[in-house]
Design a protein around this nucleic acid. Structure first.
Length: 885
RNA sequence: GCGAGAGUGGCGGAAUUGGUAGACGCGCUAGAUUUAGGAUCUAGUAUCUUAACCGAUGUGGGGGUUCGAGUCCCCCCUCUCGUACCA
């Protein structure tokens, strides 16, 4: 068999790599290290999708490249294997999640190996393995010890459908991130982690990280630091002397505070409300508590609220201002109370308008300002001692004054809230906690791991009792230290727990003296490159940073931050689809549709706005359409259609299965194609024709090396002759380009360079081995199987992956002649070829340029005003045209 | 609304510091080979004009800086992602 049959060679090399432990991490700390990490997958039942190989191929290329450049490379993989789907499957079928998980892991491992990734499989971790989660529990005990883990009875996000509580980060628009089920607020006993204590450290730590700016920005927003002041307002006729404390970022506007608003849940509401208003206020609180976050958001445009009948005293003017309650003030942010300054705040303005409350401007808006609240800068007005000052100055002067009279102080607030860390689920890490007389006690480290007991049923009870509560024998235990009767914690940890520190376990997966061997940790950390989806920008990446920073403070790790460089791979969309629209049998232009047709991508028929008649979506073939202007239209008409690539989804039926691609074209083609599609970070549509393109390229490589014998014999096309200078130049240009592009993770242009080389090499009568072999090495990180196979057939033993990466010879890269584009008035009119050693001689080159026939044409009868000469780049002659032109 | 990013051929994309816009791949056209198809090879392929060369136009739109702008500056439009009463 001489033709390229990926099916015949890929399995062979995968087995070879495994048997020879080709990619085992070297244990030699004298080598420079490179830790390259993939976000480990959740092994779902549906197997790998084409998104996985994208990031994984990128890191694999880099890992192989770094190894060939003499680095000790740590490139591991594992399984984020706790999670809801396996548990839900257990509820339905009674299959233990352990079994489902193991099955899925095996499938995933097989699929990853099928793609030829160079992981060190001896370091595989699995978050559901008791030997692993023993250390997850150990870290939890550290957090507990440091006072960073606590129990609280708190209103939580309870999702009845999922039967569990969710972290704030897992609730999106009032619905669960997983499944999109409604979430309500409900008070329950929960474990919390005091991530807020690390708000400042987590914020500062971002500055020195080589991460996408957008991701850092998202984390900064999530932490949400605001600098301002807390101001106390006394309450009129209130004997207990309690004060209302508000948080504001605009203390400069205090003179414009015309009323106070408390969150409905604020503890003073019931205390201060006057009898005449009690009924209405209680009613409002009741209403507000029933509303989900979703409803609150939907109703956010119209402000609601109630007057309490009470008044506060303005700390500076001494005036009395009314105290209201309204749900636009959030109980959990700041102090749960605000001073309303409608003149400078849009929300307060809307509220004041709705309830006819007074408005005082304290910042002079510009003359042409129209509208309500003015939030821009300007001189202070109506503000006593602040008048005339700009905002920044006013702020600090006001804070000074408040501090002097004892009515306020400078204050910093964060949006970040403590992390709700328990779930009412079975398939998660048990807490290493027991309760004696209702009080939590940590178990000693010697009791770890606390393993999951088997249970009969996996669903939580209606009241929210976790499934573990049914394991009576397990729940009832004794305190190993005192011997007292105790109850085990029946909540489990959220899925994020295991992924908070897995990158440490890879470093020393069998170490039993702690989560990580300190001696190895200080060598390998930090992770040099971390690649994964941007959907983890806030959740996983913030939680992991938090744990890591705590471990740093405990002296367990040596770096403040875990992931030095982060790259997100862009999503791969389905193939582009062309859709035409028909209404009552007539084609209509897509730009005449209401915006509403865009939503609900599953529906094939949707009601158009107003008319009630239905619009039919029709899938069109490429042959039925054409481009007109900047849009696609139905061929021969002006009827616009929609051309769009959509997210892959089962319901849309546009999912590409990597198994199928590998079956048809081989793993090397899948790898190559996913890297060739475009920049790694970018969102890109799939195109099966593109896979065929790179497959053809690999076929050409094969034929260039091994020939095309119809009888199936290798006809080696490699010669022993000496390579010409021109051939070496092509090779070394390619070496340089491919090396630079891999370092910069520009894999698409690296592959393009490989193709350019091959196109060139195909014009030669044969391939000298001094050129052929380095090129094969350049190809090997991208398409490892075919590179190994050809390498072997050329007579080599051992793996090509252990060859040294070629180094570009600068002396061969030098051009012998320089080709100058010659412009006249900025337009290229001719070209001039100059010997490299004369190329920088301005006078000589310009003289030559002016002699060019095409240039003469323009110079004739014209006045030469200026000569631009950029050595080795360009010549531009600026003229005032003569008559002839 | 706010924040971030992006608009380049029929399509994915290239152009690393302001210096020949469209590399590479797909698709398409013609030819060679083949009984035919597929595969392979050769040539062409931004648009307009032209037999061809030449020429003109051209990187979402409008202005500007410069000898020279896809790249820098200002204004506007569109799209994608994120976020949303955080005081």
């Amino acid at each position: 068999m001489s033709a390229y049959y990926p099916q015949d060679i890929e399995k062979k090399w995968q087995t070879y790599w495994q048997e020879h432990q080709t990619f085992r991490t070297p244990d030699d700390q004298s080598l420079p290290k490179y830790y390259i990490l993939d976000m480990f997958p959740y092994p779902s039942g549906s197997g790998l999708h084409v998104g996985h190989p994208e990031g994984y191929t990128a890191t694999d290329i880099l890992a192989r490249y770094k190894r060939m450049n003499g680095f000790a490379v740590l490139h591991p993989i594992g399984w984020d294997a706790f999670g809801l789907p396996a548990e839900q499957y257990a509820v339905k079928t009674g299959t233990h999640p352990r079994e489902t998980t193991q099955k899925n892991i095996n499938r995933f491992r097989e699929q990853l190996q099928m793609l030829g990734f160079s992981y060190d499989w001896s370091r595989e971790v699995n978050t559901t393995d008791p030997d692993y989660y023993k250390w997850t529990q150990w870290i939890f005990l550290k957090l507990y010890e440091k006072g960073l883990a606590y129990e609280a009875e708190a209103p939580v996000n309870w999702c009845p459908e999922l039967g569990t509580v969710l972290a704030n980060e897992e609730v999106i628009d009032g619905k669960s991130e997983v499944g999109g089920f409604p979430v309500i607020r409900k008070p329950m006993r929960q474990w919390m982690l005091r991530i807020t204590e690390y708000a400042e450290k987590l914020l500062e730590g971002l500055d020195d990280l080589d991460w996408p700016e957008s991701t850092k920005e998202m984390q900064r927003h999530w932490i949400g630091k605001s600098i301002g002041a807390e101001i106390d307002f006394t309450i009129r006729d209130h004997e207990q002397g309690e004060k209302i404390r508000v948080f504001t970022t605009r203390p400069d506007t205090l003179y414009g505070a015309t009323y106070i608003v408390l969150a409905p849940e604020h503890h003073l509401v019931t205390v201060i409300t006057k009898n005449d208003y009690k009924e209405r206020v209680e009613n409002y609180i009741e209403q507000a508590s029933k509303r989900s976050d979703l409803e609150r958001q939907e109703l956010s445009k119209t402000k609601t609220g109630e007057f309490t009948g009470a008044y506060a005293v303005h700390p500076i003017t001494g005036e009395q201002i009314p105290i209201w309650i309204a749900d636009y003030v959030l109980a959990h942010y700041g102090t749960g109370a605000i001073m309303a300054v409608p003149g400078q705040d849009e929300r307060d303005w809307d509220f004041a308008q709705a309830f006819d409350l007074p408005i005082i401007r304290t910042v002079q808006p510009p003359d042409d300002f129209e509208g309500g609240a003015y939030t821009g800068d300007g001189p202070a007005i109506n503000s006593g001692f602040l008048n005339g000052l700009m905002i920044e100055q006013s702020k600090s002067k006001m804070i000074q004054h408040l501090e002097k009279i004892g009515s306020g102080t400078k204050s910093i607030n964060y949006k970040l809230r403590d992390w709700l860390f328990s779930r009412q689920r079975y398939w998660g890490e048990p807490f290493p906690i027991i309760h004696v007389d209702g009080k939590p006690r940590p178990l000693p480290v010697t009791e770890l791991p606390v393993t999951l007991p088997d249970v009969e049923k996996f669903q939580p009870t209606k009241t929210g009792e976790p499934p573990l509560a049914q394991a009576m024998e397990w729940v009832h235990t004794t305190d190993p230290i005192t011997g007292e009767k105790a109850l085990r914690e029946t909540n489990t940890m959220p899925q994020w727990a295991g992924s908070c520190w897995y990158y440490l376990r890879y470093i020393s997966p069998d170490f039993d003296g702690g989560p990580v061997d300190p001696e190895k940790e200080s060598y390998w950390m930090p992770v040099d490159l971390y690649v994964g989806g941007s959907e983890h920008s806030v959740l996983h990446l913030l939680y992991a940073r938090f744990w890591h920073r705590v471990l740093y403070d405990c002296g367990i790790v040596s770096t403040k931050e875990p992931f030095q460089r982060l790259v997100h791979q862009g999503m791969i969309l389905g193939e582009v689809e062309y859709t035409g629209f028909r209404q009552n049998g007539e084609w209509i232009s897509s730009d005449q549709l209401g915006k509403s047709t865009e939503s609900g991508n599953e529906a094939s028929q949707e009601a158009s706005q107003g008319t009630g008649s239905s619009i039919e979506r029709v899938r069109l073939e490429e042959s039925e359409i054409e481009k007109r202007g900047d849009a696609f239209v139905l061929k021969g008409t002006d009827i616009r259609i929609e051309a769009k690539a959509h997210k892959m989804s089962k319901s849309r039926g546009n999912v590409i299965n990597p198994d199928d691609v590998v079956h048809e074209f081989g793993a090397d083609s899948l790898r190559l194609y996913e890297m060739f599609m475009g920049p790694l970070e970018q969102v890109k549509p799939w195109n099966t024709k593109g896979v065929e393109g790179v497959y053809r390229f690999l076929n050409r490589v094969w034929r260039r090396y091994l020939g095309d014998d119809p009888d199936g014999k290798d006809q080696i096309q490699i010669s022993n002759r000496e390579a010409t200078r021109a051939e070496l130049k092509h090779l070394h240009q390619t070496v340089k380009k491919v090396s630079d592009d891999i370092e910069g993770m520009r894999f698409n242009t690296a592959i393009s360079a490989l193709m350019i080389f091959l196109n060139e090499a195909n014009t030669w009568k044969d391939l000298p081995s001094s050129v052929a072999e380095p090129f094969l090495i350049l190809l090997s990180p991208f398409a490892p199987h075919v590179a190994e196979e050809i390498w072997e057939r050329l007579g080599h033993t051992g793996s090509i992956s252990q060859q040294a990466w070629p180094v570009a010879d600068e002396s061969l890269l030098k051009e012998e002649t320089i080709l100058y584009p010659v412009q006249v008035n900025g337009k290229v009119r001719d070209q001039l070829s100059v010997d490299a050693d004369k190329a920088s001689e301005k006078v000589y080159v310009l003289e030559q340029a002016k002699q060019l026939p095409n240039i003469q044409k323009y110079l004739e009868g014209a006045e030469l005003i200026k000569e631009i000469f950029v050595p080795r780049k360009i010549i531009n002659l600026v003229i005032k045209p003569g008559k002839g032109l």
